[in-house]
Design a protein around this nucleic acid. Structure first.
Lengths: 309, 309
DNA sequence: CGATCTTACGGGATTCGTAAACATA
DNA sequence: TATGTTTACGAATCCCGTAAGATCG
C-alpha cells in the first residue's frame, strides 16, 4: 500500500558527509574532517540529494545555506547518527567486556566459599561487568538455568539431560563433621557405619546433598535415620558444635564448618564423590561476558583445587 | 578519553542483513529477501561480526541461533532501521510534496478574494501539504516574511530592500467606491478631484493603502482630509453603501465591494497603480512545498489576471 | 583575480555472484 | 545422503582521488 521504495539507498557515509558540511564552514573543511577529498564529498552530497529528491544545501561558490528541508533534517540526522553509533558502540563494548551483565546461580556452599575468589579474579580483568549472583540450593540452580533466569549455574552434576550441559570444575568428596572432643576425631578418617552410631544431622529430603548421602549410604547397606533435619548448612554446623550429633557435608563446606567450631574428617566406606561444575543450557550460546566468567572459573579450579577445599 | 573508534564501519546493509536473517528461518531465505546471494549475505554477517568484535549468530549448517548479544541487539537494530528509513522517507515525502507545511502571509484584500482560487489549484495538485495562512495587513505581511515567521508573503511591492525579494504577480489599479445612485456613477471613470468633493472614507494612517492614496493624490496637488477612517476594508464598504461617503480601494476588493452593495469605477488623475507580488527573504531558499506554491501563484496570475479582479 | 565548488576520468578497493568444498542431521 | 553454509575466485560495480573547468565575490 504505502510504498517506501525510493530513499532506501541512502548511506551512512552520505548523512555523515551532510552533517560534516553543516558543521563546517565549507566543503573543503568538511572534507578534511571526514577524511575525504572535496570532490568525493561533493559527489556524496549530490548523490544524497538526488536520492531523496531535492536539495539540502544551496551552495554558491563562496558560501552555502541550508534549505528548509536541510534545516529540519539536520537535527534528525544528528539523532540518527548518534543512535547508530551509540547502539553499535554499546554492542562492541559488550563483546569487549567493557560492560555487560552476568546472571549466575550457585549452590550456597560454593557461593559462600569458593566463588568469591573466582569473582575477584573476574572483576580484576573485567571491572565493568555487572554480576548478579543467585545463592540458591543445588536443585534450584538447575531449575534457574533450565528456565533461562540465569545463564550459568554452578552445582553438582545434574546427570544426563536433554536441555542442559554440565562441565566439571572439580570433584567434591564429602566429609564427616564432628564436634570438638568427639571420639572419632582420634582417627584419620571415618566410615559411615561408625558415624551412624551417633545421632545424625542432615539437610531435609528435597536437598541433593541429602539424596546423595542417603543413596550412597544405602549402597553400603546402611539406612539413614536422621535425628535432626535442617534447611541450612550453617545450622548443621551449629548443631554439631553444640554436641547434638554428627553430620556429613560436601568438603566445600569444610572451611565454613571449621569457622563454626566443628571438625571435619574424610569419609570412607562409602567415599561420597560428586562432580561440581558449570551448568548451561544446550543450544543457548553464552554471552561473551558469561563465557569469560566460565573460562575464569575453569582456570581458577584447574589444578589448584585440592588446596582450596 | 572514551574512544569510540572500532565500530564505525558498520554498514546499513550489514544490519539489514542481520535483521533479515533473524526474521527468516535460514540464510538462503534471508538472502532472497535482501536480493543477495547466500555467500554475499554470509560474508556481510561475517564482516559485521568481525567489526563489532563478536558473534551475533551461532550457526550450524542446518540451523542458527542468536547469541545473547544478538538477541539483545535485534530489537535495537529494528529500531535503528525503522528510525533511519522513517526519517529518510519523511524527507523524501517533503520533497515529493506528499507532505509538508507552508506558512504564507497575505494582505486581506488578496487573501479573501484571489488567494482561495490559487490555494484550490495547489490543493488539487498537492493534497497532503498543510497550509497556514496569515491574513494580515500589507505591512505586517512584510514584517512576517522578514522575521521568518512565514516563508512566503503576498503584498504590495515593498520597494528596494536588503533582505527581501519581490516578484510581481500582477498590477493592481485602485478604484473609486461609490454608493448606489451616486451622481459620479454616470461616468465611466472618475478623477480624484471629483471624488474629493464628497466625504472621503479610508483606512487609518499606518496602512499601506492609505499611504499610497495619500501620496498619489498629493502628486496631483490634492490633499487628503478623510471624513472617516477605519481599520477594515469591509467597514469602508458598509460605510459607502450607507451613503456616508466615497472611497478608493485596491481593485482587488472590487468584488467584495460589489457584494457589500457598493459600486466601483476606474480612477484616473492619478491612476494609482501598485504591483502585487510574492515577497520572500533573500538568501533563504524556499522549501519545496513553498516553491511549489509560489509557482502555482505565478501560473494562476499570469495572463488571466484582468478577468479575475 | 582568487577562492571554492563541480565535472571528468583513471585507478583501486570493495563487493557481488558462480562454483566447488565442507559440515551436519 | 541431502540440505544448507562457508570458502575460492573471477568479474562487475562503486567509490575515491587527481586534474581540469566553471562560477561567484
Amino acid at each position: 500500500m504505502n510504498q517506501r521504495s525510493p530513499p532506501i539507498n541512502v548511506t551512512l557515509k552520505q548523512v555523515r558527509a551532510f552533517v560534516a558540511v553543516v558543521q563546517s564552514s565549507s566543503f573543503a573543511e568538511a572534507a578534511a574532517v571526514i577524511h575525504l577529498s572535496q570532490p568525493a564529498l561533493s559527489s556524496a552530497i549530490k548523490v544524497l540529494e538526488t536520492t531523496i529528491g531535492g536539495r539540502l544545501l544551496i551552495r554558491t561558490t563562496r558560501t552555502f545555506a541550508l534549505t528548509p528541508e536541510g534545516e529540519s533534517f539536520y537535527p534528525v540526522a544528528l539523532g540518527l547518527l548518534a543512535d547508530w553509533d551509540g547502539a553499535l558502540d554499546n554492542l562492541h563494548n559488550r563483546f569487549a567486556l567493557r560492560e555487560g551483565k552476568i546472571s549466575i546461580a550457585a549452590m550456597p556452599s560454593f557461593a559462600s566459599n569458593q566463588l568469591p575468589i573466582a569473582i575477584r579474579h573476574f572483576k580484576d580483568s573485567y571491572p565493568a561487568v555487572k554480576i548478579a549472583l543467585n545463592d540458591v540450593i543445588a536443585e534450584e540452580v538447575v531449575a534457574m538455568v533450565r528456565s533461562g533466569r540465569v545463564e550459568l549455574g554452578i552445582s553438582f552434576d545434574p546427570g544426563e539431560n536433554d536441555d542442559l550441559l554440565f562441565s566439571p570444575l572439580f570433584e567434591d568428596r564429602f566429609v564427616a563433621v564432628l564436634p570438638t572432643g568427639h571420639p572419632l576425631l582420634k582417627q584419620n578418617e571415618v566410615s559411615a557405619s561408625k558415624l551412624l552410631e551417633y545421632d545424625f544431622i542432615t539437610l531435609q529430603a528435597p536437598s541433593r546433598v541429602r539424596q546423595l548421602i542417603s543413596s550412597e549410604f544405602a549402597s553400603e547397606g546402611l539406612s539413614l535415620a536422621p535425628a535432626f533435619e535442617t534447611h541450612q548448612l550453617v545450622t548443621i554446623g551449629r548443631m554439631v558444635t553444640s554436641g547434638l550429633g554428627v553430620s556429613v557435608v560436601p568438603s566445600l563446606c569444610r572451611q565454613q564448618m571449621n569457622e563454626l567450631g566443628a571438625h571435619c574428617l574424610p569419609l570412607v566406606k562409602p567415599c561420597i564423590r560428586q562432580q561440581v561444575g558449570l551448568i548451561t543450557r544446550r543450544r543457548y550460546p553464552l554471552s561473551a561476558a558469561c563465557q569469560a566468567m566460565a573460562t575464569t572459573l575453569q582456570e581458577t579450579f584447574t589444578g589448584g583445587l585440592e588446596k582450596m577445599i
